[in-house]
Lab assay of single mutants.
Amino acid sequence: LKGVVVAGGVLAGAVAVASFFLRNKRR
């Protein structure tokens, strides 16, 4: 169960970083 929580956190972080980079590329 702990691994699932960690994986979810990593996935959420990756999505946040990806969206951040996409926003920067638009400018």
Rank of each mutant, 00 (worst) to 15 (best):
A16M: 15
V4D: 08
L22V: 12
G3Y: 06
L11S: 03
V10N: 00
F21H: 15
V6S: 07
A18S: 12
V4K: 01
V15M: 14
G9H: 03
F20T: 06
A7I: 12
N24T: 11
V17D: 10
F20A: 01
R26T: 09
R27Y: 08
V5S: 06
V10R: 12
V4E: 05
V15N: 11
A14V: 03
L22G: 02
A18E: 10
N24C: 08
G13Y: 12
L1K: 09
A12G: 07
F21Q: 02
L11D: 05
L11H: 05
A7F: 12
G3L: 07
G3H: 09
A14M: 14
K2L: 02
V10M: 06
G8H: 11
G13C: 12
G13N: 15
S19P: 08
G9R: 06
G9I: 15
A18W: 12
V10D: 13
V15Q: 03
L1H: 04
G3I: 07
L22N: 03
A7Q: 02
F20L: 11
G9M: 13
V10T: 13
V6P: 04
F20G: 03
V15G: 06
V5R: 03
A7M: 12
G9S: 04
V10K: 06
G8S: 09
S19N: 08
V6I: 09
A16W: 14
N24M: 14
K25A: 06
A18P: 12
V5L: 08
R26W: 07
L1Y: 14
A7D: 01
A7P: 04
R27A: 08
L1R: 01
A14T: 11
K2Y: 12
A18D: 03
L11Q: 14
K25F: 04
V4H: 15
R27W: 13
F21N: 15
A18I: 11
K25E: 11
V4L: 11
S19C: 04
V5Y: 15
G13E: 08
K25P: 00
K25R: 12
G8T: 01
V6K: 02
G3T: 10
F21A: 06
F21V: 07
L11T: 09
R23G: 10
R27M: 05
V15H: 04
G9F: 03
L1Q: 06
R26V: 00
V10F: 01
L22A: 10
V15T: 02
R27L: 12
K25G: 09
G13W: 09
A16L: 14
K25Q: 11
A14G: 06
K25M: 00
R23E: 07
A18L: 05
F20E: 03
N24E: 11
K25L: 08
V5P: 12
R26F: 07
L1N: 10
V6G: 03
A18M: 14
A12L: 04
V5W: 15
F21K: 12
V5Q: 06
A14E: 05
A14Y: 15
F20V: 03
L22E: 14
V5D: 10
L1T: 15
G8V: 02
V17C: 06
A14R: 10
A12K: 04
V6H: 15
K25I: 00
N24P: 10
A14W: 08
R26H: 05
R23W: 09
L11G: 08
K2C: 15
A16Q: 14
R23F: 06
K2R: 08
A12F: 13
G9N: 12
A14P: 07
V5E: 13
G9Y: 00
G3Q: 05
R27T: 11
A14L: 06
A18C: 05
G13L: 04
A18T: 04
K2Q: 05
A14S: 07
R27G: 03
G8R: 05
K25W: 04
G8A: 10
L1S: 03
V5A: 06
A7H: 00
G3A: 04
V15R: 10
V17W: 14
G3M: 15
R26P: 15
K2I: 05
N24D: 00
V4Q: 07
V17Y: 02
V4P: 08
G9Q: 01
R27H: 07
L22C: 00
V15P: 10
L22T: 01
S19H: 04
L1D: 10
A14F: 14
F21W: 13
G9D: 08
L11R: 11
A14N: 11
V6Y: 14
R26Q: 08
R23S: 07
K2F: 08
G3R: 11
V5F: 14
N24F: 14
G13R: 13
R26K: 02
A7L: 10
A16S: 04
V6T: 01
A18Q: 13
G9T: 05
L1M: 02
L11V: 03
A7N: 06
A18N: 10
V6F: 00
V17K: 12
R26G: 10
A12N: 14
L22W: 15
G3E: 09
V10G: 10
F21D: 03
V5G: 13
R23D: 11
K2A: 11
K2M: 08
V17N: 00
S19M: 01
G9A: 09
K25T: 13
N24V: 10
F21R: 01
G8N: 00
L22P: 07
A14Q: 04
G13P: 07
G13T: 13
R27N: 01
K2H: 03
S19Y: 02
A7G: 06
S19R: 13
L11M: 05
S19T: 00
A16E: 15
A14I: 12
V17S: 12
L11P: 09
R23H: 02
A7R: 07
K25D: 15
L22M: 14
V17R: 06
V6R: 02
G3W: 01
L1A: 10
S19F: 15
R23T: 05
V10S: 10
